[in-house]
Design a protein around this nucleic acid. Structure first.
Lengths: 230, 230
DNA sequence: ATCTATTAGTGTTAAAATTACACATATTTT
DNA sequence: AAAATATGTGTAATTTTAACACTAATAGAT
């Protein structure tokens, strides 16, 4: 009987790096950490860690995110695996990138300041270590594609939000200006919003109606997908 | 100075498994190999191998594909990384799936029969080992998305092909019937085909005009993308 | 009290894209 | 000569997308 001889194969470290996207009513941001160990100590980096023997990649991403931020129940999705031979000069490491989506306002308090982590506007983020800038780029592309093919917002907006906030989220993700009326018409055609009687008074004298997602219809649209053409 | 202490982290085997799609004028197929070692000896499997220390994942996928099929210069794309803890009962192994596209007719002779490899129609493929069926599923979804957002065909069709063959390719990938006239109108609007004076006489008495891709325009469309709405 | 400034909210029309749909042509076989 | 088979071609109806401008509400300034 021929047995597999896995024992002669090279083993590698498998890292998980998280591109954590947040939205704060205006801007799309990412959460970065200042590295406190060599190599590249003091430089900004994605939040990351290593896969352990007892967990799969999804679990690892959840654990790493939780460990460095205290956050739980966060939407995450695998993006791509990065494997350039010398991407980490310390040791051969392959890294699997995950992106996460969170509403900054809702989770601000949980983000304990004990860790040297900080939100950066996407456009003003510092240069990152290794190939982390490539990871961010790929994650943005993925996020963008997602926003065009499925509803997005549940993870990035507070429970109640105005139409303008929703539009600004889409504008931030797609990096483009959208027409107010066309956006509303389009989004309403998806039939996943519930208009509330409350108004948000923080942004104007007139006040703006608040909306919620209809969870069930939202989920159905996530399943079925749609075509949001900008 | 705090040094990273990578040495305590778990290392794992990193496999690369290839979903090799082929097209033979009628059907979409995948190339499978019969495993000749334990575990799961004798069962059908994707073509795979292990990442080595000297190569990145893309290179590894190319090497593995070449080693088992003799094929060179094949379009490949990373799909997803699979990491269930016990996915390979022999040893903890994470696998990165790649899909490849090849034109069966052009490459048939290169596919040396020394290896126990065989084409299967997608619909009639046997159950595969481990999580390989999931990999195939994910690769099909990716291929489908690709076909809707960029031209496809250069990799899967012979140099010269008929409109009907191109349509059949799209129908196979999208798993749906398309209207002949609408398909032609749509595809012509992309302006990436060159109509030749030659006819293919193999499929009808009347003969069907052969087409070629305009390589330059095709590549530009791959870059820019399009929206093929079925 | 009036004016000003600011953001919210709302519909229509033109243009473009998509869909549905049917018959004549060329040729080989019978 | 007729039958069979796959090719090749265009238009009209429908749907979707894109462009576009004014009124409403209200707080703050004068």
């Amino acid at each position: 009987m021929v047995l597999s001889n896995y024992s002669t194969e090279d083993k590698v470290l498998l890292a998980v790096d998280c591109i954590i996207f947040g939205f704060d009513k205006e801007e799309l941001k990412i959460l970065l950490v200042q590295r406190d160990f060599e190599p590249e100590k003091g430089k900004w980096s994605l939040i990351g860690g290593f896969l352990t023997k007892e967990e799969n990649l999804d679990q690892s991403a959840i654990r790493i995110l939780h460990h460095l931020t205290g956050l739980n129940n966060i939407y995450m999705e695998q993006v791509y695996s990065f494997s350039k031979v010398d991407r980490d000069p310390a040791e051969r490491t392959i890294s699997v990138a995950y992106y996460a989506l969170i509403d900054i306002a809702t989770h601000d308090e949980e983000l304990i300041k004990q860790n040297p982590i900080q939100w950066f506007s996407l456009k003003e983020a510092p240069k990152l270590i290794f190939d982390h800038d490539m990871m961010v780029e790929k994650a943005i592309a993925r996020l963008r594609r997602r926003a065009l093919s499925k509803p997005i917002g549940f993870e990035l907006l507070p429970e109640k939000f105005t139409m303008r906030q929703l539009q600004k989220l889409y504008e931030a993700i797609l990096d483009t200006k959208l027409d107010k009326r066309n956006f509303i018409n389009k989004f309403n055609s998806f039939d996943i919003l519930i208009k509330l009687d409350e108004k948000d008074m923080s942004s104007s004298k007139k006040g703006a109606y608040l909306f919620q997602f209809d969870q069930e219809k939202y989920n159905r649209k996530v399943e079925d997908g749609f075509n949001f053409k900008i």
